[in-house]
């Protein structure tokens, strides 16, 4: 949930400290000295990021051209990529991953709905704000295990079903049911974060707009449609992008503790398949190639979404 913003990286505002000081104190040497200090202060972080992120990305690309189990390796060119594009399992897993996207409209709808209610200062709105946000601070393994315990064959949900006269359901033995439980966990755990972001958008609406609309006789729906939705467009964009990224890259924890990808491969997601290929089948090359393809897909999706939403905002 610490996923940051990628939408708004605005230009620097105003002259910088060093630039201003340059005006106060004459002498280029002093400016140069200050620039050097700035560089030295930023350098450690940059070096860490270079060695622990940039270098590994390059290495990942190299690994994707190898047949390797981590010990021995052989250069095989683009074969890993060719294998992935032709492997039926990868296609199946990609479709499964798309199924998990069902959670996103639900998360956004619930998030927006509760955000508007909280914005209207319903009784206890501060309490609800924290309670709905609460699952966001829990680990995916905590949430996953709670759902697994709740939905096991002799767990609370089935006990309740029996009590109401239904047959118990073996949720994790049936593909669609297992997906349903994971999606439910995603919604339960995820809508509070979206609510929080949308609420921060609502808080910045100029309340005069509502007063003016009321003078014109606008009802609740009209105010919702013509004031609220346009005002939180940017937050809606952010929430949909973040949730899409999340669905493609961060389901590992849920899948790992809830279903281990099963039954068969019916809940295996792309990120879980990368893990399986690299660390269960010890095919680091193909795992790496899959991770790179996955990264390409989500990068394209993110760019497409933000372009689309920017056009929308410009209308």
């Amino acid at each position: 949930m610490t996923l940051p913003a990628l939408l708004e990286v605005g230009p620097d505002k105003g002259p910088t400290f060093a630039g201003r000081v340059q005006g106060h104190i004459r002498g280029a040497t002093l400016t140069q000295q200050k620039q050097r200090i700035g560089l030295f202060a930023a350098l450690p972080a940059f070096l860490v990021v270079t060695s622990l992120l940039f270098y590994p990305i390059g290495y990942a690309v190299w690994i994707s051209f190898l047949k390797t189990d981590g010990v021995t390796s052989k250069f095989i060119g683009l074969s890993n990529y060719a294998n992935i594009f032709t492997e039926p399992l990868v296609h199946e897993v990609f479709v499964t991953n798309l199924k998990f996207l069902i959670a996103i409209p639900m998360v956004i709808f619930l998030g927006l709905f509760t955000a508007v209610l909280l914005y209207q200062e319903i009784w206890g709105w501060r309490f609800f704000r924290i309670i709905f946000f609460l699952p966001s601070v829990l680990s995916t393994s905590v949430i996953g295990l709670m759902f697994r315990s709740a939905f096991t064959l002799n767990g609370p949900i089935n006990t309740a079903l029996i009590q109401f006269g239904f047959e118990p359901i073996n949720f994790f033995a049936r593909a669609n049911m297992a997906i349903f439980v994971v999606v439910l966990a995603l919604i339960w755990a995820g809508f509070g974060y979206s609510m929080m972001i949308l609420l921060s958008g609502l808080m910045s609406i100029d309340t005069d707009l509502f007063a003016a609309a009321e003078v014109d006789g606008a009802g609740w729906w009209q105010k919702f449609r013509y004031i609220i939705i346009p005002s939180v467009k940017q937050q809606l964009a952010f929430v949909s992008i973040i949730n899409t990224l999340y669905t493609f890259t961060s389901l590992f924890g849920f899948i790992f503790v809830m279903t281990a990808g099963g039954p068969m491969y019916s809940t295996t997601t792309l990120d879980y398949l990368v893990y399986q290929k690299a660390f269960s089948a010890f095919d680091m090359g193909e795992g790496s190639a899959l991770a790179i393809i996955m990264f390409g897909v989500i990068a394209l999706l993110t760019i497409a979404q933000s372009k689309h939403l920017k056009n929308d905002a410009g209308r």
Binding site: L6, P56, A60, F248, L270, A278, S288, A291
Partner: peptide, 11 residues
């Protein structure tokens, strides 16, 4: 900033 951990974990 938004690099997924799957791409980093193997290298």
């Amino acid at each position: 900033m938004l690099l997924p951990s799957q791409i980093l974990i193997i290298p």
